[in-house]
């Protein structure tokens, strides 16, 4: 039962990664990337890696999304 639940979680992880690559549009891709980070946090919790799960949660889902959105906002046509 535990193995099957873990398998479903890994399927979610790989689908989130594939979706982040296949969607068109920069902002959509970044949001799917944060979904990938959150599911990776869950996978780390299943693998009993609590320190790594906390780090992935704050860095992947929080900080990297902020950096990406900041860079995207600086790289589009400035409406002046």
């Amino acid at each position: 039962m535990f193995n099957f639940a873990y398998f479903l979680l890994l399927v979610l992880l790989v689908s989130a990664a594939a979706a982040a690559v296949l969607v068109r549009g920069m902002i959509t891709s970044v949001i799917v990337l944060s979904v990938f980070s959150v599911s990776l946090t869950l996978v780390f919790s299943f693998l009993q890696a609590v320190d790594v799960a906390m780090a992935e949660a704050v860095i992947g889902a929080g900080l990297l999304t902020a950096f990406f959105v900041t860079a995207i906002s600086r790289a589009r046509r400035k409406t002046k």
Binding site: D51, M54, A55, V58, A66
Partner: peptide, 16 residues
């Protein structure tokens, strides 16, 4: 579980 890196990144995110 935790440490300097986790807390540091959270402090940075709060300032951002």
């Amino acid at each position: 579980p935790g440490g300097g890196f986790h807390g540091g990144v959270t402090m940075g995110v709060l300032l951002i």
